[in-house]
Design a protein around this nucleic acid. Structure first.
Lengths: 177, 177
DNA sequence: GGCTCCTCCTTGAACTTTAAACAAATGGCT
DNA sequence: AGCCATTTGTTTAAAGTTCAAGGAGGAGCC
């Protein structure tokens, strides 16, 4: 991220041309982004750990389940929706199961498959902690941005997210550029 | 984050009024944000773990050190710059020390104090991996956004970050609203 | 000096995340 | 049926993070 004073251009046949360093302005944007994102996630993590007894990611899992038909989702689908690995999800569900907020259920169609099912207790936790969480999000984000800024933020982050989705072919195929 | 169908308004004297749920549009913005931020950080984490043998946060620490006078910073100052807790920093520096990229040095003025100092080896790692990292950031972010969007992103994230800075009095004093 | 409070940083335990390896089931394909 | 590649989800260990507690030095005050 830092440009060592003056690096001379590489040989033209080298794959590594002079790196496209960030300009000062780009630097500022990038650092603001990282700082904001870090502070925000830490903030919400603490908020939820305190009020709901779980990290932000876990809370997000419960939300996805609550929105799903019959409050259940296949592990792989949940992992994709939540943008986390299956491994991470496995651990997370194990912990949420221990807390009594989620229960596993076998999939009748596919003996490999597992459903993660939101328990009534899990739904209750969500019901009780959701107001506090939305409020935290509002105070940290929406209350501070103009409608136009909110709209921009949505568009921008959607673009960034799409560029990184494993779904999008070409994203992991840089040699096709 | 999810509004259970129709919750009746609370008693007016209750502190908990009807929660200010997010509108559908706000939901979309918020989810795009979380997804984008998650995917981006995971992506850069993998990129740096692969190419530099350390997580994104650790890389950021080396960058801060590289920019500091005499390539050294007091632990507390580094923690504040990097927006992480001192505890986390302690562990992180221990690991970076083991890797030979940072070294601790006692502070002459204050016997409690410690400097984290970037070693030559640490600087070298940075020099070699910085180009690849900037490139990753460019591809994921700057190459996809218009100049106007980049500017907006900077402004927006700066606002969010400022609202969460422990520095800003009033941020932790919600009763003063 | 002695007292108290605060700051600086570390530590250890509990918890979460990652990466790699794995078993089991599925889905073609012959 | 038999075979092989893929998909599904879990497991293990190592790495990273958090939280609460604590040692030690500094700073103000009597």
């Amino acid at each position: 991220m830092k440009a060592p004073s003056s690096a001379p251009p590489q040989s033209p046949t080298e794959e590594a041309q002079e790196p496209r360093w960030l300009t000062d302005e780009e630097q500022r944007v990038w650092r603001s982004f990282m700082e904001g994102a870090t502070l925000l996630d830490d903030h919400l993590d603490r908020q939820l750990q305190r009020d709901a007894g779980m990290p932000h990611v876990y809370y997000g899992l419960l939300v996805k389940l609550a929105e799903a038909p019959r409050r259940r989702l296949r592990m792989t689908e949940l992992a994709m929706l939540a943008k986390i690995t299956r491994s991470r999800l496995s651990h997370a569900i194990a912990r949420l199961e221990k807390s009594g907020w989620v229960r596993r259920e076998d999939c009748p169609d596919d003996k490999r498959g597992q459903f993660a099912v939101l328990t009534d207790q899990g739904y209750e936790v969500l019901r009780q902690t959701a107001p506090g969480h939305v409020e935290a999000v509002r105070q940290a984000v929406f209350d501070r941005l103009t409608p136009q800024q909110q709209k921009s933020l949505g568009e921008i982050m959607r673009i960034i997210a799409e560029g990184l989705q494993p779904t999008e072919a070409g994203a992991d195929l840089p040699w096709l550029r």
